[in-house]
Write a protein that binds this DNA or RNA. Structure first.
Lengths: 193, 193, 193, 193
DNA sequence: TATGAATGAGTGTTCATTCAT
DNA sequence: GATGAATGAACACTCATTCAT
């Protein structure tokens, strides 16, 4: 019974994850999940109290760690003078571990969370990073935020893309490094001297 | 009556566009569109055979021009030796014109096409551009495509972001230039010598 | 095993009773009953063939005795001339015993029988008593039944209210007496001389 | 169109009223209402935004007037010394008008509001009246509230019963008077001297 | 022709009941 | 025999689509 419950839970979570990743939260119906998982709609409710809870089961842990990261980032300043920008936090072991461990949760939060309580997490992250980057740019105020938003989003989406396509930690690490190189250099081109 | 019909069509398209962009395709009901456009739901169906059709009406032209651009791009090589990379095509008057003229259609294709016949357009564009960029990178083959995809996507999303937030052609142009500067420099960091 | 079964039956009945009285029949699920009783849902069906059956198990005895009382009452006349009205039957030891012994079954019949085979018992009792009271009233025929129904219902609901709120036989008895006093005097005011 | 809407609204309200009165709010499904009214489930939502709203449409006005009455009653004291008890408020023209005008709304609130926002109105009224009556009774404190609750409930249920069965204002009035006579005299029997 | 009333399939959710283990 | 997993019909509610007027 314990076995079964765990097994069914796992099967349901796994199929839900696939569908949510493919189609997004709103466009995935419990009917679909039930069919893919080979159970009835009613059975879904033996393991999860609602569709939302099912989604959160797949994302809560990632969201919590992401929020913690955000809090830490908020306190830091992005100082070009130091030579190291704090978005290089993405190279820290701690963050990379999180990225690897929370891979699918992060993907769901970043790409398919519309209609859930996490739908503002990605925009929030982008805005926060953009607010750090904007003052550094050698561009009139009006446009610096726009460009900073693009940069912030690119960085975040780049990380997500790597996560999506690389399973091995060393590959993730190596490509994150390259992404940061690309991103740093790109930003440099528009920095105030 | 022809006049009237044309006028209604236009009003409907315009309101649908706003709503699709603001709330997304799924979360916009025909009721909302009809109300905003000041016509009856029945009239919607006199002008458009379905909700999907209405979406295509708003995107077909942009999609066609985008596809044409894709075809032309496919033929070109991105040669770092020339000093000018062909993704700088985004600076050409022709492309900028298209971006400005098809602005909203492009935004819809890029952000709301999931589940429609254009859902592969953005990924297709990214793949194509990535395929051009990848061979230029000083990275092992396995990873170069991954990074190239990130770069291509960043470029495209950056263009979309500018389109979304700048109404004046000269602002669009100026920021596109900065985006390309950022992007080129970023790529340079990973180019083969 | 017989013992066990009997024990489980008893526990289930007891918890079902509590829940039905507290939350009502409809708002009580078999899940709740099973949990409170510490048995599985399957076991519920070993003892009772359905939720309705469970309800009847809790009410059949009370219903039978109530019906018997009804039959006896039907034969009697409520004669004001005797000085004792037969609704004072509620003061008889026999009836009080029944009230106390069938307390919860009666409460269920009186308050939760909608949709069950006993849904007509309370109205039936009221009608019967009303039919006895009506001819005694110094009111035109048309209205005497209406008033008699009110009186009958008040009496019955009053008894039910006492049963619900007093556990000790002597308290029940004392309050029944007061209720009858109140009721008798009230009726007196409208009696034919 | 206006005509139709009004007509359908009326038909739906009327059938809903019947069903709610017969079966209660919870046990009446929109399916039933739709069938009885000869419209589809979807059509219900053209006129009413939800099942609850449909119920409130039938009861809001009555509830508001009832609450107003409650507020006024709360301020009054039930003084046996005056010879007139304030529950004789039920004889005032104003109250009788309300009873007649809000007949069905009151019946719904008083008998079938379980599961709605008005489910506590009847118990609240009874408690309030009981609190006024209890101190007047020549019974130990412990039991006086119990008896007062019975009396209060009887009075209210009696009014409801009359309402349910008499359509003509003069019949309602006449029977209310008799009910009050019955009730007053009944209470007298237990009053402190 | 234009309208909006009407529909019905679909959504998430609950729960009495059944049945393999 | 006992369990609880599994079901399926029902619930309130939404919405693209159709069609009588």
């Amino acid at each position: 019974m314990q076995d079964w419950k765990e097994e069914a839970r796992h099967k349901i979570l796994s199929e839900a994850q696939h569908l949510f990743l493919e189609r997004g939260y709103d466009r995935t119906s419990l009917q679909m999940i039930a069919e893919k998982a080979g159970v009835s709609k009613g059975s879904l409710y033996r393991c999860f109290t609602s569709k939302e809870e099912l989604f959160y089961e797949l994302t809560d842990s990632a969201a919590a760690r992401l929020k913690a990261l955000l809090v830490r980032l908020r306190g830091k300043r992005f100082d070009p003078a130091t030579g190291r920008r704090e978005y290089q936090i993405f190279e820290s072991e701690e963050v990379i571990s999180m990225l690897l461990e929370e891979k699918y949760g992060l993907l769901l939060i970043m790409e398919q969370a519309q209609g859930t309580r996490y739908e503002d997490l990605r925009p929030g992250m982008i805005d926060m990073m953009a607010a750090k980057i904007a003052p550094m740019l050698a561009v009139d105020e009006e446009n610096s935020l726009l460009l900073a938003q693009i940069m912030a989003r690119n960085l975040i989406d780049g990380v997500v893309h790597i996560l999506k396509n690389r399973l091995q930690p060393r590959d993730v690490r190596a490509n994150l490094q390259r992404l940061l190189e690309y991103h740093t250099r790109g930003i440099d081109s528009l920095l105030k001297k």
